[in-house]
């Protein structure tokens, strides 16, 4: 089942075109990895995907998917560094996309939050303050929140930025498990290319005209990959 579609999409920032005439489809259960250098348009691509930036030309359409079925792991913002909030408050807030204007949590949602905290091994931190836990733990809290929101797709923006290699590896493993066990499609932007690719089954290599590879093998054979790693 197709979840979303890019049809001849051009995305631009002010007067500069970042992504030009790009098409692709994403289906349920896919694991798509978006790689590229800094400034190659990865963030712009995500904004387009999330509907936060309308395309200059072309069409981005959610097909078998609603905005409120998306889970998202954004990069941490400045505001969050000293924000007074408990882990529980943050994880629960992922459930809010199911609520109407009256935004109280149901028993089921509270259980879901606990389940996801269990899954990521942060249940002990439930009553800790977000600003007082480590960077890796914070990242897991934000992932747990994203899981509460995700019904069909999980979008991750540099999930392992600032984490050490050992923790990163665990993180990628968790994400792969979510992909397989919950049948949730993954779109992940990352710049540490080798570990990120390990779980993916499709790749977009970002440049002005992004190239879409249906399999990781094809990408590994490509010129873009070799040049990106500095081999050519």
């Amino acid at each position: 089942m197709i979840l979303l579609k890019f049809e001849n999409v051009t995305l631009s920032y002010g007067n500069t075109t970042v992504i030009e005439n790009f098409s692709m489809e994403l289906s349920a259960g896919d694991y798509l990895c978006v790689v590229g250098e800094n400034g190659s348009g990865k963030s712009t691509f995500l904004k387009g995907l999330l509907g936060l930036k309308p395309p200059a030309r072309g069409k981005i359409s959610l097909v078998g998917l609603e905005q409120r079925e998306i889970g998202y792991l954004p990069q941490k913002t400045d505001i969050q560094k000293n924000f007074p909030a408990s882990v529980n408050e943050i994880v629960l807030s992922g459930c809010l996309n199911e609520c109407g204007f009256l935004s109280f949590y149901s028993k089921r949602q509270k259980n879901m939050a606990i389940e996801n905290m269990d899954l990521l091994g942060i249940r002990d931190l439930k009553n800790e303050s977000f600003k007082e836990i480590s960077g890796g733990q914070q990242q897991r809290v934000l992932l747990a929140r994203a899981l509460c929101a995700a019904k069909k797709i999980l979008i991750l923006d540099e999930p392992c930025a600032g984490l050490d290699p050992v923790i990163s590896k665990k993180f990628y493993k968790i994400i792969k498990n979510i992909n397989i066990n919950k049948n949730i499609a993954i779109v992940m932007v990352s710049h540490d290319i080798r570990p990120a690719l390990s779980g993916a089954n499709a790749v977009i290599h970002m440049q002005q005209k992004p190239i879409f590879f249906k399999t990781v093998e094809k990408y590994r054979e490509s010129f873009s990959y070799k040049r990106f790693l500095g081999g050519v």
């Binding site: 998306i70 954004p74 969050q80 807030s93 994203a146």
Partner: peptide, 15 residues
């Protein structure tokens, strides 16, 4: 709370 803590997340998930 959500809009204060993380506007990007709120926007992306349809709030």
């Amino acid at each position: 709370f959500l809009v204060t803590f993380d506007e990007n997340f709120a926007n992306a998930t349809g709030i």
